[in-house]
Design a protein around this nucleic acid. Structure first.
Lengths: 348, 348
DNA sequence: CTGAAAGCGCTTACAG
DNA sequence: CTGAAAGCGCTTACAG
């Protein structure tokens, strides 16, 4: 009905149409101060008619809050950033907040540059997304607003970090295998330089020790985070522990390779060897033959949790330290009880 | 050296330290108007000392430009959004611009909501990211700033859309196979409801017709975008065209399934059947046995191209219509000349 | 309950 | 070349 205007209506336009001052219009619109009900109605109606949307810039300038959060990632392309980002974006959206996204590509110069850009844009807070759940130098001293470190732990004890609970995730995997009656559990995983790999290994070993079980093959097999390594490692492990009846893998990609390697070697999954992956990366876990039982890191929830706590800090909470997001086991067909008979049997 | 202050320095602080008015300080900092060289130096020095960063909110309020672009995706989780987003983010960063990210999750209500939020935040322009390179209703009438549609075409002829060139990509695949001497080329792809699938099929068929070659199997095999379908379709196609010597697949995931299916049926890749995938999705294309020759959509470049054109529009260019981003062929080991002898031969 | 005034931090004509 | 003033669109004491 109304003629389109190139620039949209301002508070002043609303006030004028409602026949009040812009101060009163502001109060009516923000449910602040005492405004006569009739006045409020008129203002609301005027705002409605003009499709009034308050200018967020002006609002931010006066209120000191922009309702924007800066998010700096290291590697958007990696497969961990996206689910976390989704969780963050969703949690922020629920609070009418927006996210300014920057990808530093693992470059410290770029990261500094983005931090100062975001600060200049007056973000209310910052989320620093790591790429490997590991410890990194704190950046907080350069940042005058609250910061949450996610999937990467700040080395400053006063900072607030959110990590995936890799030890706990590995325990879930180990408990599951043991509860199925598996007794000779091996571990094939990624690069030992990753804390994620070490934590998963120690989580598995802890649960095995509690059960009085050894780790099949003696030690975890560390290697690349690749299918290729999975195939190769499967044959190494079978050499060291021919009677292995379960393998916990450090990623779904590795697990896919392990399954292929086992198949090439004539072992059946899960009858002869049960396999648990890690990550619940659907395209691998669900498409594997057989589909993989795996640990889901709940990364989306990790992002949401970080945002919730960051809101707490914005509202004055004093929080610091490390918060670990528990994972969950997703059971598919690569695990089950061992075959009834001993050794590979011709179950059709 | 300097004591940290809770709120950062303003232009006024800089002006005071330099002993000039804030108007002059502003001009000196923005290389605008005539400012005495000595004055400029003093201002710059003062700004440096105070680590002055202009408040982007205030700047946006006066200048009318925020140097922020809104980006609305449908499905951040999908595998097309991220590379495009990376290209966009990178191109924007080069121009000192930032991106406000929103994921509408394919929900029209959410999308509308985000559009008005972004407009209220005074973004300079908007990028609407599609999830399937298909035609969709224009949203431009609700948006008072320039809009670019990416990986999704607006149905309004005055809008500006950026698409991956699927026909062209398929032609690259087809030409490659023909140039290798393959003559019985089949096509296994995803759901026919996707324009991407139809365009790729027609691109392939066009090139085959130009060469006077039929499509092996008579018609493209449409199905799921999954490995499972690839495996299944491989056997269907072999049934219909036992002499097939090449298969162009609609995705790397399908291609991976096709390779598995062919192996199960005793065909060698590439000796007996050459395979070309689509997407250059590294975890599939590079990890496949053998690694896949495939078409890279250049999605990152697509994002960058969209941003560059959007800048043009922001600067007054009149642009509309569809711009197609060419793909490129990535040659790996799943293609090569046919085996010298006829039929499967025991090449060691 | 309502409104005039000041202010957020910057930029941009306009005088001088 | 420099600066006082007005203004971007909103909010917040403060009078009335």
């Amino acid at each position: 009905m109304n003629r389109k205007r190139s620039s949209s209506a301002t508070l002043g336009d609303v006030a004028q149409l409602a026949g009040v001052s812009s101060a009163t219009a502001s109060k009516a619109l923000n449910s602040r101060g005492e405004v006569a009900p009739a006045t409020r109605r008129r203002v609301l109606k005027a705002a409605e008619e003009l499709a009034f949307q308050p200018n967020a810039l002006a609002r931010g300038l006066t209120s000191g809050r922009t309702r924007m959060i800066g998010l700096i990632t290291d590697e958007l392309g990696g497969r961990f950033a996206i689910p976390i980002l989704l969780g963050v974006e969703n949690a922020l959206g629920n609070e009418q907040m927006s996210v300014l996204l920057c990808d530093a590509r693992g470059d410290a110069i770029r990261r500094r540059h983005y931090i100062s850009t975001l600060v200049a844009r007056q973000v209310d807070g910052l989320i620093i997304l790591g790429d490997r759940n590991d410890i990194r130098p704190s950046l907080t001293s350069e940042i005058p607003v609250p910061v949450a470190y996610v999937y990467g732990e700040s080395d400053a004890p006063d900072d607030l970090s959110f990590l995936a609970d890799d030890e706990g995730g590995a325990r879930l995997a180990g408990e599951h295998l043991v509860s199925l009656g598996r007794r000779r559990v091996g571990h094939i995983t990624g690069e030992q330089t990753y804390r994620a790999a070490r934590d998963r290994a120690s989580g598995l070993q802890a649960i095995l020790e509690e059960q009085g079980l050894p780790l099949a093959g003696g030690a975890p097999l560390y290697g690349d985070w690749s299918q290729r390594w999975g195939r190769q490692a499967a044959s190494i492990l079978l050499g060291r522990a021919p009677d292995v009846d379960a393998i916990f893998c450090g990623s779904d990609q590795i697990a896919t390779g392990v399954v292929e390697g086992l198949r090439d070697l004539g072992r059946r999954v899960p009858e002869d060897v049960a396999i648990v992956g890690y990550d619940n990366w659907e395209v691998f876990a669900a498409e594997c033959r057989p589909p993989l039982t795996t640990v889901d890191l709940n990364l989306q929830q990790l992002g949401a949790t970080a945002v919730e706590h960051l809101f707490g800090v914005l509202n004055g909470d004093q929080l610091h330290g490390v918060i670990r997001q528990p994972g969950r086991l997703v059971i598919r067909e690569s695990t089950g009880p061992p075959a009834a008979t001993e050794g590979p049997s011709p179950h059709r």
